[in-house]
């Protein structure tokens, strides 16, 4: 198996993300700010790379990297359970599912995007929208709690309690959404045998 340079780059980035995660776990007593900026930069760069890279597989791995960095941010914020769920579900399952999807559907050639006036306009519109939102977020008067969240090891119990008391109804609706998505995915993706009655 030979690895091209870009593959090495992507895998290297992945490993470095895992490394960063561990480091940030160790560092967050000393260098929360440092961990935050490193992870946030990684996340933004990998998200931008995911959109810009032409190859679908690399794009999917960059997405996984983005998810990992986001998980690291949750660690910095003392949301341990959320970080675990983020890494297990998004980095572990969703991104890998994308890779499988790309493998199964085959790599199709993505047509080159002409750099035309429309494209330029879209970029300006997006940038303008981003600038507006960023300004609002930067200057906004947000309701922030005074002290940082405690690194409580018992968050899972607290989350479970909330699920079955305060957020019972949304929790049940979410389970219905999952059931519905399951039924829907099977119906849509199922290959119809020919001997069944035809539509």
């Amino acid at each position: 198996m030979t690895l091209r340079f870009a593959d090495k780059l992507v895998f290297g980035l992945l490993f470095s993300a895992a490394f960063l995660l561990l480091i940030s776990l160790l560092l967050f007593n000393y260098g929360e700010a440092l961990a935050f900026y490193v992870l946030a930069t990684t996340m933004l760069l990998s998200a931008a790379g995911m959109i810009l890279v032409r190859d679908l597989i690399r794009s999917a791995f960059l997405l996984a990297l983005c998810f990992l960095a986001l998980g690291g941010l949750y660690v910095v914020l003392n949301a341990g359970f959320l970080a675990a769920a983020q890494i297990l579900i998004y980095a572990g399952a969703v991104a890998i599912l994308f890779v499988f999807g790309v493998m199964l559907t085959g790599r199709q050639h993505i047509p080159e995007h002409e750099f035309d006036f429309k494209f330029l306009t879209l970029i300006f519109v997006a940038l303008g929208f981003f600038a507006l939102l960023a300004r609002g977020l930067w200057n906004g008067t947000w309701k922030l709690s005074a002290e940082p969240a405690q690194a409580d090891l018992n968050t899972v119990a607290a989350i479970g309690e909330r699920f079955f008391s305060q957020y019972l109804l949304p929790f049940e609706i979410a389970s219905l959404i999952l059931l519905m998505a399951l039924i829907g995915a099977i119906v849509v993706a199922r290959k119809e045998p020919d001997h069944e009655r035809t539509a």
Partner: peptide, 21 residues
């Protein structure tokens, strides 16, 4: 609850639209 029920409505509508395969 608002957002989740909106998603329940929307996602089942997506599947319903795709049902004539």
């Amino acid at each position: 609850t608002f957002y989740l029920s909106l998603e329940l409505l929307s996602i089942s509508s997506f599947v319903l639209v795709a049902l004539r395969k």
